[in-house]
Design a protein around this nucleic acid. Structure first.
Lengths: 348, 348
DNA sequence: AATGATTGCGGAACCGGTTCCACAGGAGGA
DNA sequence: TCCTCCTGTGGAACCGGTTCCGCAATCATT
């Protein structure tokens, strides 16, 4: 089966390429008769215009790069979902890319700068801001606060989330011996969570020993190790800066005969979907993750489209005066039993 | 900043476009001197060749479409990870697309047929085989057994997985009153799981009443409803055909004072990452999900590359005699406490 | 030294669309 | 009636690369 092009259709319809192109793209200034003829020929020959060619001449790929550090866990999946929801409605596609190491970083930057996409949504802690600013393409950064002419940032207010949690532990419960487990040092999230915690601590005049701030790396395994480390000197409550580590801590403790929720309390951060089903159900901080995806997508579309006036007719701004913005989303405290609270069944 | 093209580079290097192109693509037959000159100019001017143009003339997008029905849950995330791992190594990109409804289906088919990609990996129960066969592009189907000239299929042997589980319940435990919760009727997976279960039942001469096969839809909520439905006539064990529903059943029972793992046993299917942390830890069937992604990616690459001979030199087959294949992957029974087994701490 | 093979490169066609510009013909206004 | 405006269309340039073909110079062979 020979591949069919717009020219063949044109020939068969006895019109020129340009007319066919206009008909396909719903341009005005094509007679109804011609349009119908073209459309029926398209259907008859199963003709789908070649995106590659279209893309080259129209300078639009209708694709947005989405860079994430892997997709395991519900976290990234939710982001993808949020992004997809919005982009799909606006007829954009997602080019998904991981950023595990420097090689992949190079790869996706190359893809972006090679105009494989019209813009990018990036969640990558390791990428240098200076490098990023050299990219000549609309960008939305997740979990960052960098902005510039063409860069917007969306982040969750991790600091206030863990500040709230810390206050819940300190003020509501009156705990005085609290242990905090951090994420990896390079993680923006992790540092924000720590700083929110520290702020609450300082405000309450509590004294937290150096040995009560323990370094983890956001993995289950690191949580388990923390459990073993503090076994002989248990605090009242352990605040793990993500749920996976909280789970690891729980497991580590259980393995050593310590009962979480009774002998020691544990709270997490993220509100992963399984947190309410574990034993004891985990008190944690919920983030509007899917919303992050949605908003990122909306932001990128915003910087892409040059705006429309009230008549719905496209108008090009003479000068795009817009500057990237910085959105911060709030969090929500999810109280369950693992912090020592008694909640009724099925409450949350 | 004016955009720079291959022609500008050529002019500056005092060579022709073609030579620059050859230099960039590491073609042979370019003198070292020229190559170096071109490379250094590229770096100096931050020149990245335009993918859109490259794509049009080379007829290769280096992109594979990945179609999934959403990405929530660890299931799809793992598939993406597996696919990414392989594709990345081979310098391919992933164009991610959801398939929620007929509109999105149309959309992604259009993208594929419009040659936005070089091939596609599709997991979409609702897509009609006849429609699929009209697509002139290498395809890998997940959870299907359709094959053709250009279509391969990868699936998990769901049937044997649930057959094994059923036998574990029937033979090892000697349960006689088993309730099976299905997934949505359109789901290939779901039907396979049911049929494996039924086979084991028949082979053991067990009698399972009509009312012991209950329809769910793979969601947590449907599991909870099942729990309420069977509350007044509890079976010995409930085999939910996925973990989420198993969890829903557990919650539904707990809310009504029935203790899973004691009053009634429950098993699931999928081995989601949280299954070992819930109370009681869930007996389930593990699927090599990430492997599915990996193999799908490898298959699609296989159909893309025309093969290489032992000297590592590309050779075009005169006729591509390859036909799509059908891979079935086995499963693994994961025994934990929820089925009534006593396992030592930290065993699995 | 003559011949043939190889290397390095330039020119031009080509990939399949989009879009600018020109133009014919009909409608409408003065 | 003449001029202008609008509609529908064709022609050609263009997007920015890749690749085929041909040619000159160099190298190897006999």
């Amino acid at each position: 089966m020979k591949k069919i092009t717009i020219s063949e259709i044109a020939k068969m319809a006895n019109v020129s390429k340009s007319t066919v192109s206009r008909a396909i793209n719903g341009s005005s200034r094509v007679s109804d008769e011609t349009r119908k003829k073209v459309m029926s020929l398209m259907r008859a020959y199963d003709f789908v215009p070649d995106t590659r060619a279209r893309t080259l001449s129209s300078r639009k790929t209708n694709t947005i790069a989405l860079v994430l550090p892997g997709v395991s866990g519900p976290y990234y999946g939710e982001i993808i979902n949020g992004v997809e929801e919005i982009l799909m409605k606006n007829n954009y596609f997602i080019l998904f890319m991981g950023c595990e190491d420097d090689e992949s970083r190079k790869r996706y930057l190359n893809a972006i700068e090679g105009k494989r996409v019209d813009g990018a949504i990036i969640l990558d802690w390791q990428l240098s801001p200076t490098r990023l600013k050299r990219v000549d393409m609309p960008l939305v950064l997740i979990d960052s606060d960098l902005t510039s002419e063409s860069i917007s940032s969306i982040s969750i207010d991790n600091a206030s989330g863990s500040y709230d949690m810390a206050n819940h532990l300190i003020k509501t419960h009156g705990y005085t011996d609290i242990c905090f487990v951090t994420g990896p040092a390079e993680s923006y999230d992790s540092n924000q969570r720590l700083s929110g915690f520290m702020r609450a601590v300082k405000e309450s005049d509590l004294k937290i020993g150096e040995n009560r701030i323990i370094n983890g790396d956001f993995t289950f395994e690191s949580g388990r190790k923390v459990a073993e480390k503090i076994l002989d000197n248990l605090p009242q409550v352990i605040f793990a800066s993500n749920d996976e580590m909280a789970l690891g801590v729980m497991e580590g403790l259980k393995e050593n005969g310590v009962i979480p929720g009774k002998d020691v309390f544990i709270v997490g951060f993220d509100d992963a979907l399984w947190t309410k089903f574990i034993d004891p159900p985990l008190t944690t901080v919920r983030q509007p993750i899917k919303e992050i995806g949605r908003i990122s997508a909306m932001r990128i579309l915003d910087s892409l489209e040059s705006g429309k006036n009230t008549d719905g007719i496209n108008v090009k701004h003479d000068v795009n005066v817009k500057h990237g913005i910085n959105v911060k989303l709030g969090t929500q405290l999810i109280i369950r039993q693992s912090c020592g609270c008694q909640t009724k069944k099925g409450e949350i």
